[in-house]
Design a protein around this nucleic acid. Structure first.
Length: 261
DNA sequence: AGAAAGCCTCGGCCGC
DNA sequence: TGCGGCCGAGGCTTTC
């Protein structure tokens, strides 16, 4: 569920813990799946003081007096500080919080708790996460970095939609943002990256950054212009064209048969 | 019943 | 035939 915009709002909420010291950490076997064991998390986080927060794509980073802590949110993960949600109303599924969906977290010396709330258990904790496989961050993608995103070394390259979803190419774009960017750029998501012409690349770069800014202002990845037509038989909100749907890059993709080509 | 806003692994294919 | 990289399919997990 969370894409870069949601994780950025989680980061902003988490930044309120800078200066606090962890007195206890806990995680279930799923949240700790990338670690050697759930107790490894508890042991590693004890007595760490949070010094800063940052983010690369969908990976939230808590910098501390010792190791760096990473949090991934999967499809349905939400960051909570006590009862405050990192973002509201973005749940896929039940629009509510349940104590049974808490998978782990940190307790601080000031009594506050940082919580991973995640019904579908695809969120993960990490210790000193490896950033080397992540591309430049989607929220601050400049033209030079964008040119690398659409640069193909051999052949025609894969579909542009699949490329936008590849976290090693650009970090942070998920399924909804990718569809919204291509919708705004007027580009068929199946277009091989290497076949994009200069005009299409220019439109794509503008749409990329405009989508990030606009949806951040609106409050989430799910508030894009194409969202209302994101169902079988939907009609394009821009020109009334028939929306098409297909799995591209492993994800369900919707696009307009008239203005995306 | 089937799909869902993420990501990891596996295996097939292609080109050197 | 061998190998590495690319890429798509499938699985994980639970909920609606």
């Amino acid at each position: 569920m969370p894409e870069v915009l949601e994780v950025e709002s989680y980061r902003q909420l988490a930044s309120g813990t800078v200066g606090a010291t962890v007195v206890r950490g806990w995680a279930d076997g799923y949240a700790a799946k990338k670690l050697s064991s759930p107790s490894a998390w508890s042991r590693a986080v004890k007595n760490l003081t949070i010094t800063d927060t940052s983010r690369r794509g969908k990976l939230l980073l808590l910098h501390t007096s010792g190791v760096t802590l990473g949090m991934r949110f999967g499809m349905t993960g939400v960051l909570l500080i006590d009862d405050e949600a990192g973002i509201d109303g973005l749940f896929y599924g039940p629009h509510s919080y349940q104590s049974g969906w808490i998978r782990g977290g940190l307790e601080f010396d000031d009594g506050r708790k940082l919580i991973l709330h995640d019904p579908r258990r695809l969120g993960r904790f990490e210790i000193d996460p490896d950033l080397s496989e992540l591309g430049p961050d989607a929220l601050t993608l400049n033209r030079k970095e964008f040119d690398e995103v659409v640069h193909v070394t051999r052949g025609e390259g894969r579909a542009i939609k699949a490329r936008l979803l590849d976290q090693s190419v650009v970090a942070g774009v998920g399924n909804l943002l990718a569809d919204e960017i291509l919708f705004r750029a007027g580009i068929d998501p199946r277009t091989p990256t290497g076949l994009l012409n200069v005009d299409q690349k220019n439109r794509l770069f503008r749409a990329f950054n405009l989508t990030m800014r606009t949806l951040q202002r609106r409050g989430g990845s799910h508030l894009g212009d194409h969202m209302p037509a994101r169902f079988p038989g939907g009609l394009c909100p821009r020109d009334g064209g028939q929306m098409l749907s297909e799995t591209i890059g492993g994800r369900t993709t919707y696009w307009c048969s008239l203005h995306q080509h």
